[in-house]
């Protein structure tokens, strides 16, 4: 299936609350044990295949650390 979109996580704003992981219905975002430069655990966009660019992670992110982009046309297969 063609990719629908992707997210970018701004680690300088993220505080590691985990709401993105909690509200992503597709399981695309996962909290990790890696710490950001601020010393806070950060999530990673681990499952790009299933992202549908629904933006719920961005809506629920209290620190405005997620940008959501939608592909306008299907990317060429690799």
């Amino acid at each position: 299936m063609a990719k629908k979109g992707y997210i970018k996580i701004n680690e300088n704003r993220c505080t590691g609350c985990g709401f993105c992981e909690m509200f992503c219905k597709k399981g695309c975002v996962e909290m990790t044990k890696r710490l950001s430069v601020l010393g806070l655990p950060v999530p990673e966009f681990t499952n790009a295949e299933d992202c549908i660019a629904c933006a719920m992670c961005a809506w629920m992110c209290p620190h405005v650390a997620i940008e959501v982009y939608e592909y306008l046309e299907a990317p060429a297969s690799a």
Partner: peptide, 14 residues
């Protein structure tokens, strides 16, 4: 590949 920004930092966020 073209893409569109959907959500994230609002325009008025400083």
């Amino acid at each position: 590949m073209e893409e569109k920004w959907i959500a994230g930092t609002p325009k008025l966020w400083r």
